[in-house]
Simulated scan of single mutants.
Amino acid sequence: MFFSCDLQVWLKKNGSSNPSRARFHQWPWTRIFSHACWLIWKAHCKQLFSEGIPSSLEVQQQCLFHLMEEVTMGTLSHKLLQHNHERSWTPPKEGEVRLDVDASIRQYSQATCDGVIRDATGEWIMGFEKALGAYPVSTAEILAIKTGLEVCKGLHISDIHVYSDSLEAINMLIKDSRTNHPFKEEIEETRKLLYEEWNVIISHANRENIHCADSMTRTVQVASQDVILYPEIPAWCREGFWRDKRTMAGG
């Protein structure tokens, strides 16, 4: 029941009910409803002050982001964004994959992206590369995350820990991109993937800890805007791959 009754009755009913739902099933409905009302009110205020109004999809994503915040032992944590301070390449947890991504700008401002997917033992699952077109580096880094998630989706992988060396790209995905951002569509498409029905975590990594993805970006002269997949370790990644295997934390 939405607005088929008096507003006060509607608010009271939604504040005390617990309807069945698929997308937000892990949180109490009262928490979801209060967050959604607050975000709709914020959107209304933005419209009043001519700041542009977010789409319904943006409101849903913002709601999910806030719901994923938790306080444990007095410390704020987040299910999507995880702060890691790894000294060497760290394998993902059992049942997860680690997705390292990187991007670079080549001649005439043409961007490319690359990535490597590995399992909990550090074994190679898949590598990929793609020509993106003319983009600034921060947007290219976002599209590297998007491409990597699309590859994982194609491989039917649902538990993913993404590592990027671009804090700017991560912050742009987490925060409101605003309606006037020149690459708002690319940001929103990537953000939509993050909030799909799977388990995704994003962490920042130092460049030396995503060595394989970085070496692909520096070595490959990719021209295709189709994703090129590498089910086997390419020659230019072998040295970095075996270095990670020897030194990986927990190994």
Rank of each mutant, 00 (worst) to 15 (best):
D214N: 12
K192W: 07
N209L: 11
I228M: 00
T247L: 13
T217G: 10
E208T: 03
K192S: 15
E239M: 03
D226A: 09
R246N: 02
P231L: 05
C212A: 14
W198G: 06
S224P: 06
D244L: 09
E232Q: 14
P234Q: 10
I228L: 12
W236D: 06
S203C: 04
L193F: 08
A213D: 05
A223I: 02
H211W: 08
F241L: 06
N199C: 12
L193E: 11
R191Y: 01
W242K: 08
P234R: 04
I210V: 10
E239L: 11
K192P: 02
L194R: 01
C212Y: 04
I210H: 05
N199D: 15
A213Y: 08
I202L: 13
G240R: 11
T219R: 08
E239T: 09
K245C: 04
E239C: 01
T247C: 05
H211P: 00
D244T: 09
A213F: 06
I201K: 15
F241R: 05
Q225I: 06
M216Y: 07
I201R: 13
M216V: 10
L193V: 06
V200L: 12
R238K: 15
T247G: 00
I210A: 01
S203D: 07
M216H: 09
T217D: 12
R191E: 02
C237H: 03
H204R: 12
Y230L: 00
V200T: 14
R246A: 12
L229Y: 00
H204K: 14
L194D: 14
R218S: 02
Y230I: 01
N206V: 08
L193A: 04
L194K: 07
D244C: 08
Y195L: 04
Q221F: 05
Q221S: 10
N206H: 12
E196Q: 14
A235K: 13
R238F: 06
R207K: 13
A235M: 08
L229R: 07
E239W: 07
V222I: 13
K192R: 13
S215G: 00
I233W: 04
R191M: 07
C212H: 02
D226K: 12
E197S: 12
C237M: 04
A213G: 11
Y230W: 14
R238N: 01
